[in-house]
Simulated assay, not measured.
Amino acid sequence: MSAAAAITWQGLKGACLALPVLIAAVLAGAMIGETPLAPDLVLSVLANKLAGAGLPVDPVDQGIIWSYRLPRALVAGACGAALAVAGVVLQALLRNALADPYILGISAGASTGAVAVTIAGLGGGALSLSFGAFNGALLAFGFVAILARAAGAGGSRAAAAQIVLAGIAGSQLFNALTAFIIAKSANADQARGIMFWLMGNMSGVRWPDVWLAVPLALAGWVICRFHARALDAFTFGTDSAASLGIPVRRAQVILICATALTTAVMVSIVGSIGFVGLVIPHAARFLVGPGHRKLMPAAALTGAVFLIGADIVSRIIIPGQVLPIGVVTALIGAPSFAVILVRGRRAAR
Rank of each mutant, 00 (worst) to 15 (best):
G193T: 05
R225E: 01
M199S: 07
G113E: 09
R206H: 07
A110W: 05
Q172D: 05
R192W: 00
G136N: 03
G121R: 09
V222M: 08
L218V: 15
S130A: 15
G123P: 07
A183S: 12
M199N: 04
V115T: 12
F234N: 00
F174N: 05
A153K: 10
N135Q: 12
A145K: 03
I103K: 06
M195R: 05
A151R: 14
I103A: 04
G204N: 13
A169G: 13
V144F: 12
G200Q: 03
I119Q: 03
Q162I: 14
S171I: 06
R157W: 06
L129G: 01
A213I: 05
R157K: 09
A217M: 11
A176I: 05
Q190D: 09
M202R: 01
A110H: 07
A120S: 14
A191S: 14
A145S: 14
A228D: 03
F131D: 06
V205S: 05
L198H: 03
A145M: 14
G136F: 00
A158G: 05
W211D: 00
I106T: 10
A151Q: 13
L177R: 02
G152H: 13
F131H: 11
I223T: 05
G105R: 11
R95C: 10
A160N: 13
D209M: 12
L165G: 09
A151W: 14
N96V: 11
F234D: 00
I163H: 12
A179E: 11
I223S: 04
L139W: 03
K184M: 09
L165N: 10
I223Q: 03
V214P: 00
L94T: 10
V115Y: 11
G113L: 08
A159N: 11
G142T: 12
V205K: 02
L98A: 11
W207H: 04
T112Y: 15
A97L: 04
R225V: 00
N175R: 06
G124D: 08
T118H: 02
S203M: 05
A108S: 15
Q172E: 05
G193F: 02
A99C: 11
S185L: 03
W211V: 10
G170D: 10
F143E: 04
D100E: 15
N96Y: 08
M199F: 13
R225P: 03
L98Q: 09
G132F: 00
M202I: 11
G125R: 04
R157M: 14
